[in-house]
Simulated scan of single mutants.
Amino acid sequence: MKKALVAGASGGMGYALVCELVSRGIDVVAFSRGKEKLERLYKGQSNVIIFSGDALNQDDLMEAADGVDVIFHSVSFPYQEWVEKHLKCIDIMLEVAKIKGAKMAFVDNIYAYGRQINQLVTEDAKKEPHTKKGKLRLQMENRLKESGVPTLIVHMPDLYGPNAENTILHETLKNAVLNKKANFVGSTKAAREFLFTKDGAIAMVELALRQGAYNQNWNIPSTHPITGDELMAIIQEITGYEKKVRTVSKSMIRFLGIFSPFMKEMVEMMYLTENPVLLSGEKYQKEINLWPSTSYRQGIQETISWMKEN
């Protein structure tokens, strides 16, 4: 891979992917709608071409994808816009990839797996999503597989890291850093996975560099599951935060949904905070002799430092 396009480069995972690709000497087109944020993140950075455009506009993507070997799909939309935009975005990106002769690497979450009880979930697990968003993610996955474009689909749990502002854990961290009352979404007793974006990017780029990794699904778990109580202990140690933490329950989210379209759409995903889906990384560990393993303490420290600086 000599040149890559990262669509969604202004988001947390997109930012980590751009940084990881550049660190390996790969030229990157950083693509997103917000030119101002792209310039704030990448202006003056060698090997990065800033391209402000709309992922739902095929002409924009065609121009941005000129000469690229791999298109990284890291575009996200607000929950309430998923039905309208996600499938359209996948179709446009696949068409561009076909015309340009590029491969595709898709940043996916765990929603398509649906409920998976008492087991580490492998890539072969039967996908029977019971939520609207899970069913939509499975549709997206199937379109990638049926497209004829070489694709790799990378499933990751909840993310956190520098510039990862649209994440559950960011909502906790931002108030702790400001020493305001912090919220934690879901039970603080259930062990869940949170993946540091830099680790996810290392794993994904490593896969994208290997021809044999395409036309497959890959799970990238975190270093280990962790409870909210354990996370808060780390956050308190780093920030000095001493206030109580407010637990945001499903019933609270449902109530807020009366006033907020985003919260209304979030209700159905709260099962993941009660019965977490935990990923098996056995396939990746077996095939790739590289395992990203940033500790939660180090990852949270780097995230908080980035928040304070930016």
Rank of each mutant, 00 (worst) to 15 (best):
L38T: 01
R246K: 14
K189E: 15
Y42K: 09
D27F: 07
W291T: 11
Y42L: 06
A191P: 03
N109T: 15
E39I: 00
V267H: 05
L279H: 05
L279S: 08
P78M: 12
T151F: 13
V70D: 06
V18S: 05
A7P: 03
G299Q: 05
S74Q: 07
N217S: 14
I49F: 05
V70F: 08
S295A: 11
E282H: 10
S76I: 12
K264I: 10
A105E: 04
F51P: 00
L94V: 14
D229I: 12
I226T: 06
I99A: 14
L41T: 02
R40V: 07
A213C: 14
F106G: 00
A97H: 08
H224N: 12
Q211K: 13
I153M: 11
S295T: 15
K283V: 05
N289C: 12
K37C: 09
N219Y: 02
K286H: 11
H155K: 11
I300T: 02
L94W: 08
F31L: 06
I220R: 01
A164L: 10
K85Y: 12
E265P: 01
K127H: 02
N166K: 15
G281I: 08
E81I: 01
V177N: 08
Q285P: 00
A30R: 02
K189D: 13
I26N: 01
E287C: 06
E230I: 03
I90M: 12
I99Y: 10
D54R: 08
A191R: 13
K133S: 00
K98D: 10
Y271N: 06
E193K: 06
N217H: 15
V68I: 14
Q211D: 14
K264P: 04
I110C: 11
P276C: 09
K243I: 03
I49N: 09
I71R: 03
I110D: 03
I234D: 07
E206C: 08
R33A: 04
F51C: 04
L231A: 10
I49V: 12
S305N: 13
G240P: 07
L87Q: 07
N310C: 07
E146Q: 14
P292V: 05
I168A: 13
S280Y: 07
A102N: 07
T239Q: 09
I235Q: 03
K135D: 06
R254G: 00
G34D: 15
E165L: 15
T303R: 04
F77D: 04
G34K: 14
R192T: 07
D91T: 12
K189T: 13
I71P: 01
D27G: 07
E282R: 13
S222G: 14
L159R: 06
V245T: 12
L173M: 12
V121G: 02
N219H: 12
C19V: 08
I253D: 01
A102R: 05
S52P: 12
E141C: 02
E95I: 02
R210C: 04
L279G: 03
G161V: 04
I300V: 12
L290E: 09
F106A: 04
Q116R: 10
M156S: 06
K308E: 14
I110R: 04
G67W: 07
M104H: 01
V70T: 15
V75P: 03
T167P: 02
Q45R: 15
